[in-house]
Amino acid sequence: MADVTMRIWRGDANGGNFETFTLAQNEGEVVLDVIHRIQATEAPDLACRWNCKAGKCGSCSAEINGKPRLMCMTRMDQLPEGEVTVTPMKTFPIIRDLVTDVSFNYVQAQKVPALLPPPMPERGYVMFQEDVERGQEFRKCIECFMCQDVCHVIRDHEENKEHYSGPRFFIRYAELEMHPLDTNDRRHLLREEMGLGYCNITKCCTEVCPEHIHITDNAIIPLKERVVDAAYDPVAWLGRKIRRKHNRTADEAAVQPAP
């Protein structure tokens, strides 16, 4: 097989540049295999994060030819001919080479108010299959954070990180809001503090998701429609007034049950 040229970003917080490696291409290799061969031969100090090599741990996220992809699931023979560019995820601060600091996501994870079930009835909690199935898709998330990386709201506007949870956490909010045992109401929280309105539904998160979760259609848009119910629909507002129903405020919803 022909040789392959890899153009890999090398550097840290002090700066960096591309380094080019040319090596023989082996049949059936994925990008992560080639990165490992470079580590084993030419650049033992090349930093990359990886774990399962099976597309299930979400560790080896990077940008291959400019698009967020898992290195372990990207076959070399499916990339266009010519040199292959590998860079770290752009949205997060660099640690070294292909490794980024994704702690922004853990901060956002901490902000998600947990499931708030009613007191346990005598017979215990009961879940029906149709309710279990509804949230199943969202639980496939492997937290590779490529949806967060590709989302232009924070990719191109660092300042929005303060008030934007991002697609990965919107699917978590959707899972909770669609949970039949949850008694919380996070709609005002989503609108006022988690930045749901910043999403302009360009569906890049769905395009890059390695688990093929329909993030936009099944999580973000349903959440946006729920926020319309809570904050923008005058008929829904009138209905609440007549039935004397109260929506939880953002502060009320943000209170979490103790672990």
Partner: peptide, 27 residues
């Protein structure tokens, strides 16, 4: 019910990796 408030806040800034170009896509 006992409650717990999130205390960690987002830290902005930090140097991003990769070149300062608008994109690296080849398609």
């Amino acid at each position: 019910m006992a409650v717990m408030e999130s205390s960690t806040s987002v830290v902005l800034g930090g140097t991003r990796g990769g070149p300062s170009v608008t994109h690296l896509r080849k398609d």
